[in-house]
Computed example of a mutant assay.
Amino acid sequence: MDVIVGIDVSKDRLDGHVLPAGESFFVGNDHGGIDALIVRLSQMKADVVALEATGGYEMLAAAALSSAGFAVVVVNPAQVRSYANALGRRAKTDPIDAAVIAAFVGATRPQIRPLRDEESQAFSAIVSRRRQIVQMITAEENRARMAQTKETHKSIRRLLAALRRELESLDDDLDGRIRTSPLWRVRAALLTSVPGVGPTTARTLMAEMPELGTLDRRQIASLAGLAPFTRQSGKWRGKSFIGGGRGKVRAVLFMAALVAARHNPVLKAFRDRLVQAGKPKIVAIVATMRKLLTILNAIIRDSKPWKSA
Rank of each mutant, 00 (worst) to 15 (best):
L212R: 06
T204V: 12
V134N: 03
V127P: 07
A207H: 01
Q111F: 05
L191F: 10
R165K: 15
A189N: 09
L183R: 14
P195K: 11
V194M: 11
T152C: 09
R187L: 05
R143V: 07
M206V: 02
V127E: 04
V127R: 08
G196A: 08
T204R: 04
V197H: 07
T200A: 06
R164M: 13
D175F: 09
A188C: 13
R130C: 00
I126T: 13
V134M: 06
R143L: 14
V197D: 09
R177T: 05
L167Q: 14
R158Q: 15
M206R: 01
L215G: 08
L159P: 03
T201V: 14
L223N: 02
I133N: 00
G196W: 06
E140I: 04
I112A: 01
Q135W: 04
A224T: 03
L170I: 15
T149K: 10
V186H: 13
R157D: 14
R131W: 03
S120H: 04
Q219L: 07
E208D: 10
T149N: 06
R179N: 12
L191G: 09
A221K: 06
L159F: 03
R109M: 14
G198E: 10
R109A: 15
L223R: 04
Q148K: 12
G225M: 02
P199A: 14
S169T: 10
D172T: 11
L115R: 02
L174P: 12
I112P: 06
Q132V: 13
I133C: 07
I178Y: 00
R157T: 15
T192G: 10
L174T: 02
R129T: 02
E118L: 10
